[in-house]
Computed example of a mutant assay.
Amino acid sequence: MNTILHKAATRGHANHGWLNSHHTFSFANYQNPERMNFGVLRVLNDDSVQARMGFGTHPHDNMEIISIPLEGDLEHKDSMGNVTIIKEGDVQAMSAGTGVTHSEKNKNKDKEVKFLQIWIVPKEKNIRPKYDQISLKDIEKENELYQILSPNKEDQGVWIHQDAWFHIGKFTKGNTATYKIKKEGNGIYAFILEGEVEIQSEELSERDGLGIWDTESIQIKATENARILLMEVPMGM
């Protein structure tokens, strides 16, 4: 088993006033050759956007883009004709493929929106762009890991063009879980959304990240009430 630890305080940081962003991996003006990616997980941004502000229309191609709102409402518009609101308890996946443009705006008048933006390198280039969004309210569980993303559109959660699986777990103090790798050779990146957990004897706090590979499973224990995001991804780019 191999691991890499990224403590919250070691992330890249950019505060633009309207946008306060922390970067687990190199992004924009934060460039760290030792923090380029974890397998096909290329970007993990922890963003806060002020009221009525947002990202203007901009392009993407050949990337799987996942947005997970943590607080507030985010309006999404894209060149495929989608105009939607994603909010806490939703997950959105957009396959940029041959190319799309989109914008994201905080729809709240008086509070910021907080969300994770995650980029996954696809296993095939120049696919037809697509959009997927679901509410997690009907599938979330207490003290269990539940799947929110997979490579199969027939499975639970949104789907993307990569052999990746995402799970969220909300645990009360003292509860445990085991996660088993779904595809041989994949690794797991654990990101702590809230609270404190112990994974493979490593103590982790809010916004810490832990990458693990060359293993068949991991053990999770909530040392305080906690919520975590597990991202299983191929380790080769």
Rank of each mutant, 00 (worst) to 15 (best):
D132C: 02
N62F: 08
E196V: 07
L70Q: 14
R11F: 08
W165V: 05
G12F: 12
R35H: 11
V121M: 12
E112W: 05
D78V: 03
E142N: 15
G54D: 02
N225T: 12
P59S: 12
E224F: 00
L229F: 02
E104M: 14
D46A: 14
L44A: 08
A164C: 13
V100E: 02
Q31F: 11
N29F: 14
H22A: 12
A177K: 06
F115P: 10
T10H: 14
I160M: 11
T215E: 09
M94E: 01
T98I: 05
A222D: 13
D155L: 06
I220C: 03
L136K: 05
K7N: 07
H60K: 11
I148W: 06
G169W: 02
H76A: 04
P59I: 04
P122G: 01
D90K: 09
K123S: 10
G185E: 14
R52D: 03
K173N: 15
K123Q: 12
T223W: 14
K77E: 11
N29L: 15
L70W: 05
H161S: 08
M1D: 06
T84L: 13
G89H: 05
R227N: 08
V233I: 09
Y131H: 06
Q147P: 04
A226K: 07
T176K: 14
F166G: 07
Q156H: 02
E203F: 00
S48D: 10
I199N: 03
H58N: 11
N45A: 05
G12H: 15
M235N: 03
A177I: 00
I168C: 08
M1W: 01
G195I: 09
I4F: 00
V233G: 01
L230R: 04
L19H: 11
R11A: 12
H60N: 10
V233N: 00
W119N: 04
E154C: 05
P33R: 11
F166V: 07
E71F: 10
K183T: 12
I127D: 04
K141N: 05
W119D: 07
D90Y: 11
I134H: 05
S79E: 13
N106F: 06
M235V: 04
A164K: 07
Q92W: 03
N225E: 15
K183R: 14
E203K: 14
P234Y: 09
M63C: 06
